[in-house]
Amino acid sequence: MRAARLTLGPLLFNWPAERVADLYRRIADEAPVDGVVLGEVVCAKRPVPARALAEAVERLERAGKEVVFATLALVMQPRERRTLRELVEQADRRIEANDATALALLRGRPHLVGPYVGVYNEAALAVLAAGGAHRVCLGPELSLDMIGRLAAAALSLPDMALEVVAFGRLPLAISARCYHARAHGLHKDGCRFVCGRDPDGLAVDTLDGEPFLAVNGVQVLSGTHASLMRDLPALRMAGIDRFRLSPHSGDMVAVAELFRAALDGRIDPAEGQRRLASAFPEARFANGFLQGGAGKFWLDQRAAATVG
């Protein structure tokens, strides 16, 4: 079986520059991840922590980690298109495309595809490969069965690797409207960057008071944290070698260490999940999409059967 690789996904939240710098310093120095995706995926209005990112690139690469830049998930305005074009034109950078605008600009040149591009079947994967994609991070709503079929299809393409999001709140929707601003009685144009107040997103509860979703600017995230820790053996069997961890305000070095240990067979995935839960005591975990059901649920029959 090929070596499993871990990627730290793009930071989805609007954190202050110093916190961004701290995250990547720790990741570069301590986390057993093979690659890191940088770049603003959610909102082009947010201030770019340019100094922190420049330092992060340097430090991550020095630590031997692959650095990739992700593009905005919903591109609409001329300014956003210009920024995207500038990013793509820096030929030395590896780019992860998150919408068809980026796919258009990257066509014919090697690139990656992020989880915001819907890839549900072999024919779609082949179209992306023909355009120059050599790695695709699959979207959250795919079942293990679909993932296995796509992994088999990837083998028949000349150069294609698949990645699956294994930890963190899942991106469920994106809009032109800013819900963070709306929750504060504001509009997107005068948003006062209220999304910066919630380092893991703003909790959205049902009117019965049940936790449900999280709002992150124009993005809607799952209220639960996905964890595919217990599903790692099944995913490896299905042909997946790459796993993505989505940054949160908790200890991401610990998350990376637990996933690394489970992938290397140093801890049992069930034990890994117990430790993950104690590192994130507030989180409710879910893996329902992988099991072919509703994404919000924690279903462990199949994982339990595989792990024994």
Partner: peptide, 13 residues
């Protein structure tokens, strides 16, 4: 209200 074809709210539930 969400960008269509990219919304997974219904499948989340």
């Amino acid at each position: 209200v969400m960008a269509e074809g990219r919304c997974q709210l219904s499948s989340y539930v």
